[in-house]
Design a binder for these strands. Structure first.
Length: 643
RNA sequence: GGACCGGUAGCUCAGCUGGAUAGAGCAGCUGCCUUCUAAGCAGCAGGUCAUUGGUUCGAAUCCAAUCCGGUUCACCA
């Protein structure tokens, strides 16, 4: 058991014995001791004064004395400042821990706990390449999966590919109309980018064709529309003329947007895309063949990107296989009376009692919507794996969708409902706001990686510390650093917060960054390289017996916290917990490394004052390096031996 | 308008299950390479923790109200 839980247990038992009060370990606050006081961990004693009928000071004394007498192996001394009981942990606890842990290559790894979770992430559309937003999603999903594994869970990494629908048809149609048979091979363009280019082409044509229609509507000419749509457009136009709307920028923009949307739907190219979608759904062989071909190009592109990013999956789901699911669930829901049918034959669920709205599940013509597919897919996943938790890594703009998804599954009595969890993360924004594909401000994932790797290469070159590296080793190093910088940048922030990325400023390589931590690791490894295999093997049986110097103790203490950090990261589903920790650990080692008194490096390993001290510091170096490496690995980041 | 999320140093963020004098990084300014890697270390400067009120021995943290920003409330996905 780690120290902090040990202290909490001991304190809970002490409170029980001293005051006959049932305090659980979880109710006891234990912090690290402020540097100006003596001790390592501090118990806050104020909560006990209610029944100790003593001052906080006296209560602290009593509790401290009790702990000292009953846990001499753990507590070596204490002092009380106001209501804070500062505990000195027995130095043998630290050296023992160091002895057992320093050579462990996977610190914090817990044995299998028999629990199974699925994590769905990435989930790209096959009509365009990945962008910066996907990178946050991918890194987050991958890292959370690794963190779960480290905590003993069995994890299924799943990717639900959105490989069908109107947006795919847009790329397909534009390719058919304008590509003259171009392929990734003929153009040398990566498949996903090639397909994405035709998506952009489609949008350009669409805009051109929509322009005159929009102008006509705004001039009061509605001849492009018929029946209900005409009525709708007329209504919107009329609303726009009202002075209270005219003067409200937000409202008029909203109405104008709706007019634009209706107009876009009326364009010839959009009509063609819709026909293509119908043909796809009807299984038209030509359309299906084109779809297969173009998706194939995209998958080749995605695979290359995933491989480069170090992202992988255990299970792929394709929407073309799942988009019809969910209808059974709707039928069952109707029978159970959970759902109801309206006059136009559409099927709904009434969530007004839960403070939400009515939600459509089947259109009047019997076709399904996004929600229906997700209901069916949730059941499919559960049938496949019976996992206790199903995590969806999806941006926070879909918070409402997932709230509703879970609620409907609960109402339908589906066993998968309880485990549904939306890991909602904030969007990556540019300094001027969201990325918009229509405005061409989307930051492409492949470009981004290239740029970071180049930056890393340039910087490595400038520092000139890589003599003797082969070209292959250099390439690998640049990748490790560039990707490390990018991953760390996107993972160091709490997932639920949105984050700003400024493409003008490249991601830093100094300070609170991946490369800083990678550098610290390389530096430790460089220290260890000075020693022979025998010297290192010798450490296995060695336990340091003396007192520890402050920073020696500090490093051991920090590493000892890694177990708890991993648990926190898993509970909060937040890689940022580990990122912050890894930075603190690296920073602390750097201080240890550079600490100078009277012109001498007082924590030098090579020039340690005794042979014992040298072994101790080597063990500390090894422990720190292993902990940093493992922490970074859980973020999906490699650490180099040299840089 | 309803629901949800956010507001901490010039900038980007930790801290938020209440605990000691609110911390990092970047940017700015000082020092430190005859040193086990200076992608580093040490230091200076920078704060009405959005505002107001409440609960408490104690509030950046909990509650309420207000202000500001965002997302969402599609027969799109």
């Amino acid at each position: 058991m780690s120290v902090v839980p040990a202290i909490k247990n001991a304190a809970a038992a002490a409170v029980q014995a001293l005051y006959q009060q049932a305090f659980t370990a979880a109710d006891i606050a234990v912090n690290t001791t402020k540097p100006e006081f003596e001790g390592e961990y501090t118990i806050v004693v104020f909560p006990f004064t209610k029944f100790s009928r003593q001052s906080a000071e006296a209560t602290g004394q009593t509790l401290g004395q009790y702990l000292l007498e009953n846990h001499p192996e753990l507590i070596a001394g204490f002092n009380v400042v106001k209501g804070f009981l500062n505990l000195q942990i027995h130095h043998q606890y630290w050296t023992q821990y160091l002895h057992t842990a320093f050579a462990n290559k996977t610190p914090g790894q817990k044995p299998a706990n028999g629990r199974k979770v699925m994590i769905e992430y990435s989930s790209p559309n096959t009509n365009k390449p990945l962008h910066l937003g996907h990178l946050r999603n991918n890194f987050l999903g991958y890292s959370v999966a690794e963190i779960y594994k480290a905590n003993g869970f069995e994890v299924i990494k799943a990717n639900l590919v959105n490989d069908r629908g109107i947006h795919i048809c847009k790329s397909m149609l534009a390719w058919q109309l304008f590509a003259h048979g171009d392929t990734p091979e003929s153009t040398g363009i990566k498949g996903d980018h090639l397909v994405g280019d035709y998506y952009v082409k489609f949008e350009t044509i669409l805009r051109e064709q929509a322009e005159p229609i929009i102008s006509r509507v705004l001039e009061g000419d509605f001849h492009d529309f018929e029946d209900a749509e005409k009525e709708r457009v007329q209504k919107l136009f009329a609303a726009l003329q009202k002075p209270e709307v005219h003067n409200d920028k937000e409202k008029s923009a909203k109405i104008t947007d709706e007019i634009k949307e209706l107009s876009r739907n009326k364009t010839e190219i959009m009509q063609q895309a819709k026909i293509m979608l119908q043909q796809w759904e009807a299984g038209n062989p030509e359309v299906r063949a084109l779809w297969q071909t173009m998706n194939g190009w995209v998958y080749e592109g995605f695979d290359a990107t995933y491989k480069r990013l170090g992202i992988d999956f255990d299970k792929m789901y394709y929407e073309s296989n799942t988009y019809l699911l969910g209808k059974d669930l709707v039928e069952e829901g109707l029978r159970k009376g959970v759902l109801f049918r309206k006059e136009d034959n559409s099927v709904w669920i009434d969530l007004t009692a839960d403070g939400l709205d009515e939600k459509l599940l089947l259109r009047g013509d019997g076709t399904s919507v996004y929600m229906t597919q997700d209901l069916g897919t949730a059941r499919l996943k559960y049938d496949d794996y019976q996992m206790e938790q199903s995590i969806y890594v999806v941006a926070d703009e879909q918070n409402y969708h997932f709230k509703v998804l879970k609620l409907i599954l609960e109402k339908l009595g589906e066993p998968c409902a309880e485990g549904i969890y939306h890991l909602s993360y904030g969007m990556v924004e540019l300094p001027h706001g969201r990325m918009k594909s229509r405005e061409g401000t989307v930051v492409d994932a492949d470009d981004m990686v290239d740029e970071m790797v180049n930056t890393a290469a340039t910087h490595t070159e400038e520092l000139g510390k890589v003599k003797g590296f082969s070209d292959e080793e250099l390439r690998e190093l640049h990748n490790t650093i560039g990707l490390g910088a990018m991953k760390f940048f996107l993972l160091k922030v709490d997932p639920k917060k949105k984050m700003i990325f400024n493409p003008e400023e490249s991601i830093d390589l100094h300070g609170f960054t991946g490369p800083f931590i990678q550098y610290s690791h390389a530096r430790i490894r460089s220290i260890m390289r000075e020693f022979s295999e025998e010297e290192l093997a010798d450490l296995e049986s060695y336990t340091y017996a003396g007192e520890l110097l402050p920073m020696e103790k500090e490093l051991i203490m920090l590493c000892e916290q890694f177990d708890g950090i991993l648990e926190d990261a898993q509970k909060e589903m937040s890689p940022s917990v580990i990122a912050n920790y890894a930075f603190l650990l690296a920073q602390t080692f750097n201080s240890f490394y550079a600490k100078k008194e009277q012109g001498k490096y007082i924590y030098s390993v090579r020039d340690a004052e005794t042979a014992d001290r040298k072994k101790l510091r080597l063990q500390i170096a090894s422990l720190t390096a292993n902990t940093i490496r493992q922490g970074m690995k859980l973020l999906g980041i490699n650490v180099p031996e040299r840089m």
